[in-house]
Design a protein around this nucleic acid. Structure first.
Lengths: 205, 205
DNA sequence: TCTAATTTTGACCAATTGGTTAAACTATAT
DNA sequence: ATATAGTTTAACCAATTGGTCAAAATTAGA
């Protein structure tokens, strides 16, 4: 598929995604997006009414993609331990392929929390957590994970997976001075994180 | 101390801190900072040559403050377990009093990684980690924390402490729908995080 | 008190920004 | 072929932006 074959609207969306993710909403320029897409700036307004509209389209797609990545865990027919292993492998793997998404999303959400409200309203997180408790009543009881502790546990798991990407800018320069390869660190983290969390749970018996 | 007593330069710095932390470098306006400080915009350029200079002054002070908060752990004459407890109590406590700093720092560093290079060059992180290994050779051996695993462990600890603040915008709206109080969550996290990490280590024996 | 240095101000500027518009171009259907 | 609708472009605009400057106000030193 050559560059000119792709539909203009699609080209705009992809260029906008690149620029917005790299520079953020405030740091991005419509002219820059147009250049990236190889088209006239007016076309941005022709297909997407304004910078806000264009940004929202990009933001919502990325946010949706991101949140969706948490879901499969609740479907998989696995033991709790295997679910944890599955999650870290898949989630860190996804972020390795999209390393800039966490920083972009976290920043834009903090900058404008109202944006995420609209998205989250549709997702009943409670439902997912109830599913977890129904799928693994015995294991959770064994590990003494009460309903009150579940948020702490879930956010701890998310922290361990997402934070290295959100802090990529620091970690990469930190690692430079220590002869550690960031990609290698991430690859090993899939296993380390799973074992770490499972150990923490097991010892809580 | 009344408003007019405070030195102008100090007033500017404080106003700039507020605005930059809230809106980020790109989203902040010099006029807005001047208004916050209650002074004429030209004074910003009189005391700090440009927006870049002003931002760097603010950024470097905050970054320094932030990194400094990781250091006391390496001094305290405590067992490894107590150090972990001490760290989470103090670090989450500090972030509770400065909840916007993590998101601000992480974003600006990702936006311009060169900025942090200058700061980190002075801090030999390796040295701190070596100190840890010298202070607790027995415990680390017992927990099977090798030199290769230490970065994974340290970053996991940082993740658990910092991430909830970086993701504040999401978590607060998430919690809203679940009748969880964010401040209460943070207060309980100090204890939860410490126990969680210590359990993970103990079970690795 | 008078003078010189410092601090503060408002008016101003060039460049950049998101956005508009009318004209030009292209494709499609009759 | 030609009219029509959809697409693309260049020129333009008003508002905003970081920054300058000379004059005014204040302070400090003699």
């Amino acid at each position: 598929m050559t560059d000119s074959d792709r539909q203009t609207e699609e080209k705009i969306f992809e260029a906008a995604t690149d620029v917005f993710v790299e520079k953020g909403m405030d740091g991005s320029r419509m002219q820059d997006i147009a250049n990236h897409a190889g088209i006239n700036k007016s076309l941005l307004h022709y297909y997407y009414r304004s910078k806000d509209h264009l940004f929202n389209a990009v933001f919502e797609k990325i946010a949706d993609e991101m949140f969706r990545k948490f879901a499969p865990v609740f479907d998989e027919n696995l033991s709790l331990d295997d679910k944890i292993r599955f999650f870290f492998r898949e989630h860190i793997g996804f972020l390795q392929r999209n390393p800039r998404l966490p920083a972009f999303l976290l920043n834009e959400i903090n900058r404008n929390p109202g944006r995420v409200k609209k998205l989250i309203r549709n997702v009943n997180v409670n439902k997912f957590w109830m599913m977890l408790m129904e799928q693994h009543p015995d294991e959770l009881a064994e590990y003494r994970i009460t309903k009150e502790l579940l948020p702490q546990l879930m956010i701890t798991i998310a922290s361990i997976s997402v934070f290295p990407f959100a802090a990529r800018g620091i970690l990469e320069t930190l690692f430079e001075n220590m002869d550690i390869d960031f990609d290698d660190f991430l690859e090993k983290r899939k296993e380390f994180a799973a074992t770490f969390v499972i150990n923490a749970l097991k010892n809580n018996k």
